[in-house]
Amino acid sequence: MLKIFVARTQQGHRTMKYPDAPPPAMPDRFRGRPAISAQKCPDGCQDCAQACPTGAIALTDKVRIDMGKCLFCADCVNACPERAITYTGDYQLAARKRQSLVIEQGQNEADLWAALDARLKKLFGRSLKLRQVSAGGCNACEADVNVLGTIGWDLGRFGIQMVASPRHADGLLITGPVTQNMELALKKTYDAVAAPKIVIAVGACAIAGGPYIDHAEVRNGAEAIVPVDLYVPGCPPHPLTILDGLLRLIGRIEDGTRQTPQS
């Protein structure tokens, strides 16, 4: 017993102060929201779009990057002869509308989501119970969703909790591209959640299929099966990106607030 007390003092108090203080420092090589400098693009150059493994880059009248499809892998950065695409350290990527994830130059601060409407916020703002459905993918999104339950992040202090039954849940948190073999289970889980309910799609797979986009075995994301209320891009998203999305969704961080990590 004495050893347990000694260890307790060694380990210290570790729950972060965020969001009441700046969020923890992000790694300097973290790849957040991409920034585009299209004026650097050589005429007719398609290198970035051709290098992108998931077709996230569209070159028409403008350079557009779909963060919902993006694996944040830097293949485009390495392919570009002029370094016209760079990744910034901006971790605030979550959006309420699918279209808000498509970014272009000058609009690098994509529309920051809106919080839930007043009625849903009244219902879920202080207590949001989520059932997690893993529907394909690689388990990395699940791993960093789980991290939010550790003492450093302590999701419970916001009234957000992962629950063991859809009957206990206010909504679903979905990861994975939705494989054919998980389609029925996802549908049944969604139906078992009482209305009103919300759906959060976490990671490139759940938004658009991720690396498996257009495989016959997957449905290219949760939206093919259920309506989605919050999209959290990344492959996988950093825990801070997920938490930021959740807190903005329930109105715990006010609209438009942008927070700079500690350096």
């Binding site: 893993s134 529907a135 394909g136 993918g137 994975g176 591209p177 494989t179 054919q180 073999n181 998980m182 289970a185 498996y212 495989h215 016959a216 075995e217 997957v218």
Partner: peptide, 11 residues
């Protein structure tokens, strides 16, 4: 198992 099958080897 098989619920996570997404066709990687074939791809």
């Amino acid at each position: 198992l098989g619920y996570q099958h997404r066709g990687v080897e074939e791809a």
